[in-house]
């Protein structure tokens, strides 16, 4: 009951019955199942692919009288993203640095009523104890930081208004059009701040958020 991260051990390579193994120190048995607290002795396994089942974009345009509303949307469904930025924010180092607010949910002592044999000893998806000296065990590369890479992005929304001929004649212009558009209006992903579009290999590292650009334009034809 230490708040450590638990990994599935590699029992084939590191035989749990071999009492002289280096891995014994990190082996824990909870309600009859073995776990290891050090990723070095954990099992390496297939955890999914970065390739989405389906991805693409669609655009649309609506015209009503002199107003045109258009939009471009991109999406991907399925596929995993390894969020290195999140990993970095969840790892405490010895010096001052940015941290993720999820750390507030970290293990903070033995929960009330918890005993060695409680059925709920393991908190799936829990955040391990925040301890700088344990960071290498708690925040190793693992499926814990693997996220669903599905996303939906409103890439562009545009609204334009074309001035009717009747008005134009009065001000002696050939054409006048106003448009308002927003790039990257919104990104919907599993985890806030994650950018699954960054790399096709499924890693997202210190991604600079896609800038949201709002522009207003007037087009006058003399």
């Amino acid at each position: 009951m230490t708040g450590s991260a638990l990994y599935v051990p590699d029992n084939e390579k590191y035989d749990p019955s071999n009492t002289s193994g280096d891995w014994q120190k990190y082996l824990v048995n909870i309600n009859g199942t073995n776990y290891t607290t050090y990723h070095t002795y954990a099992k390496r396994d297939w955890a999914g692919t970065a390739i989405p089942n389906v991805y693409g974009s669609f655009s649309t345009g609506l015209t009503w009288k002199n107003l045109t509303l258009s939009g471009v949307f991109t999406y991907a469904q399925g596929g995993k993203t390894y969020d290195d930025s999140y990993l970095g924010l969840m790892s405490m180092s010895g010096s001052v640095g940015n941290l993720h607010s999820d750390l507030l949910k970290a293990w903070n002592g033995v929960p009330e009523g918890m005993t060695e044999t409680s059925p709920n000893r393991i908190k799936a998806g829990g955040v391990p104890v925040v301890d700088f000296s344990k960071s290498i065990y708690s925040n190793a590369m693992s499926s814990r930081f693997l996220q669903d890479g599905s996303y939906f992005v409103i890439k562009n929304v545009g609204l334009s208004y074309t001035m009717p001929q009747a008005l134009l004649r009065k001000i002696d212009f050939n054409s006048v059009r106003f448009n308002l558009s927003v790039e990257n209006l919104a990104t919907f992903t599993k985890l806030q701040g994650m950018n699954p579009q960054q790399q096709f290999n499924g890693r997202s590292v210190s991604a600079f958020v896609t800038p949201r650009v709002m522009s207003f334009g007037v087009n006058i034809g003399l």
Binding site: D22, Y38, T40, S93, G94, F132, S133, S135, I136
Partner: peptide
């Protein structure tokens, strides 16, 4: 920030 190296705790960190 170098405590993990200075205190020698990376010896088993095979990655």
């Amino acid at each position: 920030g170098w405590a993990v190296i200075i205190n020698g705790t990376y010896n088993e960190n095979i990655t």
